[in-house]
Design a protein around this nucleic acid. Sequence first.
DNA 1: AAATGTGAAAGACTTCACAGCA
DNA 2: TGCTGTGAAGTCTTTCACATTT
Lengths: 264, 264
Amino acid sequence: MATGRTHRPATRSRGIPEATVARLPLYLRALTALSERSVPTVSSEELAAAAGVNSAKLRKDFSYLGSYGTRGVGYDVEYLVYQISRELGLTQDWPVVIVGIGNLGAALANYGGFASRGFRVAALIDADPAMAGKPVAGIPVQHTDDLERIIKDNGVSIGVIATPAGAAQQVCDRLVTAGVTSILNFAPTVLTVPDGVDVRKVDLSIELQILAFHEQRKAGEETTMETAAGDIGSLPAAAAAHGTSADDSADQGPDGDVPAVMPA
Amino acid sequence: MATGRTHRPATRSRGIPEATVARLPLYLRALTALSERSVPTVSSEELAAAAGVNSAKLRKDFSYLGSYGTRGVGYDVEYLVYQISRELGLTQDWPVVIVGIGNLGAALANYGGFASRGFRVAALIDADPAMAGKPVAGIPVQHTDDLERIIKDNGVSIGVIATPAGAAQQVCDRLVTAGVTSILNFAPTVLTVPDGVDVRKVDLSIELQILAFHEQRKAGEETTMETAAGDIGSLPAAAAAHGTSADDSADQGPDGDVPAVMPA
DNA sequence: AAATGTGAAAGACTTCACAGCA
DNA sequence: TGCTGTGAAGTCTTTCACATTT
């Protein structure tokens, strides 16, 4: 979804494709596991299998970073770990704030992978005064009133929003004003941000809906049914057109659903 | 991370592009909001703005579903809500099980958006005997031992994995064996599944790393620094090279990614 | 006059397949 | 021989721009 698109048109200094960037963390994880097992080198084939991609793609991805492999041998694990970490900016410390310490916020604060790779939870912020001072994951929750100060005092540039949808945009605005330029949004809402600010979204219900789409399709196949019967019962109910002149008679016949995709 | 690949020629009968499917939930959410405000119709321009995409893309997306708009007018909100819901398979009930009731699992169980759109948390499962019986989000947690029975008794086809990485593959195998064909994986690990099973992954640390990448770039631009100084200190420290110590092996499925859907 | 639906062009990403190096 | 690195081909996605319909 990559909300935050819109990078400056320029900045072509190092054009690593977005799709490649999105896979680097995957490779890094696989490499880290190999490193822990003291495996010295891997071939693109092996590493690709561990990361769940195909080897040609992996080699192409690495080619954007430079030539870090050895023909006939493979890649040096430690060296690659370092190169990818550096490329991703993980060799530096990233203080992060989490806003909205409900169930999800607490889960995120406790998430191990967070602290590991260069990210450090600098502060937890919540709008509920009752939460203030209470420690979550060993970090005392602070009140929203101090948001700006917290951001500035800690030099935070990455913010995580785990508030209810209704509060997300407002929190986002404050974060941005205070200097945050990258946001990870867990609230089920579209955030509007000024140019130069990156937003990534994680949305549970969207993922489930995508799964449901495929699941539905599988079910339909099995039985070779093509009329997708079974739903006809629960009709639109909408159908009825509001003003919009266009009387319903137009298309949707009572059963005339079956949208016949692909109108020639 | 786009999951469902698809080798097969891709059944053109109803070929809705994966990228379009991934956006339908977005449109649906925007439409639902409009519906609640009793807005009768929207133009592609307005709806696109609400969903955070551009209007040409939205129109193209809708064109795969059929011709549900009215030229010169726009789209009937209620009607579109129904059509998209049906296309996504949300007009039916999807029982879901969540495995791994730690911080994250509990957050998911409590997540409102879950219950809303056709998804119903049929059961919560955890390996810790101490959790058994304890209610989370009003649902009693059950022990992993009963996983297979629970799946079957409830006709579950969608499973959510929120266990630690180490347990994920095993849980996945059991879910699949018991009949689950769609999995939403929150564990930071690559899951291997047989053909016909869909896996989607949500990975916090990957999202953060992608943000860090862009964040780093921004910082670099501002100061025109390009040597990313300050890191040179922590060098690779790699180099050693053993022979081909490929012991693990296990390079299974060629494209261990996601399978797919729709055999022609 | 307004706004959809869609060919066609442009762009991004993936896969192929093989030259070239260790 | 084994495996990387990469042009070229193929596929998917986005964007353009306009004919078409209400």
